[in-house]
Design a protein around this nucleic acid. Structure first.
Lengths: 229, 229
DNA sequence: TTGACGTCGTGTAAAATAGACACTATGATG
DNA sequence: CATCATAGTGTCTATTTTACACGACGTCAA
């Protein structure tokens, strides 16, 4: 035990809530633990912060190690510090969350994880630690944020139809939206680029594809832009 | 050095950004450090988290010890984990923020603090550690939050005039508001109770006093209420 | 080839909300 | 009783939001 201090210190961990979307439901990425405590239970990917890495780096590293996901945009969510959230000892955890497009991000279990898989947010298995609380906070934050920042696009493939986008928003906000009003509003923002392509292999009239215009978005942001639904 | 661990651990601290308002400007509570490092420098109140207390408790305790303030509504802000934010060693800090009515919260320096005082947010002395960053994040959060949650009331005395409330919002948002529209909107929410009192000792027509109706607010919140400016 | 099916894509009118704007009322003071 | 400072109040216009329905297009199967 070579690391000694004058006062007791809580251990410090990070946990990641990664949301995905698969045209049906909002999903969350979980790992099946291969370590005590809660061995065999499903949990959020995460682990201990090393003393020479930042919190953001630790979150990225753990996510990569345990699930194979890399290069996500992770955002800090909240820091959980209840006394008994870990049965071993006092552990404080900084939670992060991220959004990804499901199909282009295959996951694979690795270090410390027996398995890694997507689950519908509304129907997860029982989670280890206080991870159900963390997931709930993340889900609430997602619902709140999606209204005033165009983060929904992170969850879709690069090219998408307006109907896909609308379904995504309806799923996250859990309320139906009017098709014409939705299109009017979203197109009116000028953040979508209409492509010269339509979707393929559908058994009905194919819909036009669009992509998100990140450059325009950044320009608008700097002049104080607000998204609003 | 009686506390030993298998891996090195960052130290964990809390820091508190307490905003006040004095009819002139938005203020922030600072302490003058009486400990190394940065002895003599101004800083946010805060300190080490004990292993047997929650983060919220640690924030409340440090604030009480260093400034005499108690019973505030503290809200977690963000966790700062840059590698070199403390010159001694790796320290991760969970920042909190709070709003108080200045005059009814006298501050006094105590433990580890040579002095405690209010400074205008726009004109603070140089701060220790990365506390200027923390203050900036807190200020941004305050500006953002004040638009959609009625937190402004925390900064005023229990009884206040509509003009005082308007000045507060103008200060936080840093933009002028129209008197009639402001009154229309704020009264239209039904969150203010008109009192049978007017302000005293003013050299002109006295304004009616109001108080915030917290009970009604809670009721509205549960049904999904949104404040909006 | 043609008809049925399913989704795509589009516009308008009514209602609600936000924003601009200026004068009278009241109480204190000299 | 005139002056001063702030309190308090309403209307009109512009903008935004909401509600709402049908023809176009491509696929498929008879």
């Amino acid at each position: 035990m070579p690391y000694c201090y004058a006062y007791a210190r809580p251990a410090l961990t990070v946990d990641c809530v990664v949301f995905g979307y698969d045209a049906e439901a909002l999903q969350v990425l979980l790992i099946q633990r291969d370590l005590e405590p809660f061995i065999g239970k499903w949990a959020l990917p995460g682990g201990f912060v090393r003393v020479e890495e930042t919190l953001d780096d630790a979150a990225r590293r753990e996510l990569r190690e345990e699930t194979g996901l890399a290069d996500l945009y992770l955002e800090q969510l909240y820091t959980f510090g209840a006394l008994a959230r870990d049965p071993r000892e006092r552990v404080v955890s900084v939670a992060y969350y991220a959004l990804v497009e499901l199909f282009s991000h295959p996951v694979r279990a690795a270090t410390d994880a027996r398995d890694a898989a997507w689950f519908p947010v509304a129907d997860t298995p029982p989670l280890a630690f206080d991870h159900a609380d963390i997931l709930a906070v993340a889900h609430a934050r997602l619902r709140g944020k999606v209204r005033y920042q165009p983060i929904g696009f992170e969850l879709l493939p690069e090219k998408f139809t307006l109907t896909q986008l609308q379904r995504l928003y309806e799923t996250i906000l859990d309320q139906p939206l009017d098709k014409r009003n939705f299109r009017k509003k979203i197109l009116g923002m000028g953040l979508l680029v209409e492509l010269d392509e339509v979707e393929q292999d559908v058994a009905h009239r194919a819909a036009r594809l669009y992509r998100f215009d990140a450059a325009t978005y950044r320009r608008l942001c700097e002049r104080g832009f607000n998204f609003e639904l």
